[in-house]
């Protein structure tokens, strides 16, 4: 067993365990932290495969942005997760029976899983030696996968529109920052000079 294999099992094991803890943890903040741990381990797995760019992106975007945002949200919202989990025990027996059945069946599939001959041959599509990871992505993103890339962009756009539509509220009595107004202010309308008589008190 070489080093790569050791790390593969290490990362995988930690990732699975932390993924389990995401749903098992009582404290939602802990859940998010376990999620971050899972992401980090996933990026480790990418590294093992030689996909450095993806590994870094995963860390930067998911860990740095998404998960941290998540953390803020969870901490700011006062969600009583204990209440949400009510009824969990009530359905536990039936749920666990179904769950165990599904799990066993999936294990059986794993045991009986075979790959087609074509898949065995095409398993790896090696990157050319003198092309860097990022460059390889750049080569296909707007050529071979332009359709999928654009489609992904539209999906994200839709998600953004949706988030805005559903949450953004124009409350009339809320003060807003208007940059143009700020820039357009002159000294004349910002400051009023009053001559205060000295020694007269207010």
């Amino acid at each position: 067993m070489n080093v790569a294999a050791v790390f593969f099992y290490l990362f995988s094991a930690i990732m699975l365990a932390s993924a389990f803890m995401v749903i098992a943890a009582k404290n939602p903040v802990h859940s998010v932290l376990f999620l971050i741990l899972a992401f980090v381990n996933a990026s480790g797995l990418f590294l093992l495969m030689g996909a450095e760019f993806l590994a870094m992106i995963l860390v930067v975007v998911y860990v740095g942005a998404v998960a941290v945002l998540f953390l803020f949200v969870v901490m700011m919202l006062d969600v009583d997760f204990a209440e949400l989990k009510q009824g969990f025990l009530q359905y536990l027996p039936l749920g666990s029976v179904i769950g165990i059945v599904v799990a066993i069946e999936l294990l059986l599939v794993m045991v009986g899983f075979t790959q087609s001959d074509a898949a065995l041959g095409a398993g790896a599509s090696p990157i050319q030696a003198n092309v860097s990871n990022t460059e390889a992505l750049g080569l296909v993103l707007y050529t071979k996968y332009v359709y999928l890339f654009q489609a992904s962009g539209l999906v994200l756009l839709t998600a953004m529109i949706g988030a805005i539509v559903l949450t953004l509220r124009h409350k009339p009595d809320v003060k807003r920052q208007v940059i143009a107004d700020q820039n357009a202010r002159t000294r004349a309308d910002a400051i009023e000079i009053k001559k205060a008589p000295s020694r007269a008190g207010v």
Binding site: G87, Y91, G95, I98, V101, V102, E105, L108
Partner: peptide, 20 residues
């Protein structure tokens, strides 16, 4: 919601059990 999700899972479980 969890009843609904549960129904979906039961459906999938039933189908794959059927094949197994």
């Amino acid at each position: 919601l969890y009843h609904y999700a549960f129904a979906m899972l039961i459906g999938v479980a039933a189908l794959i059990s059927w094949y197994l």
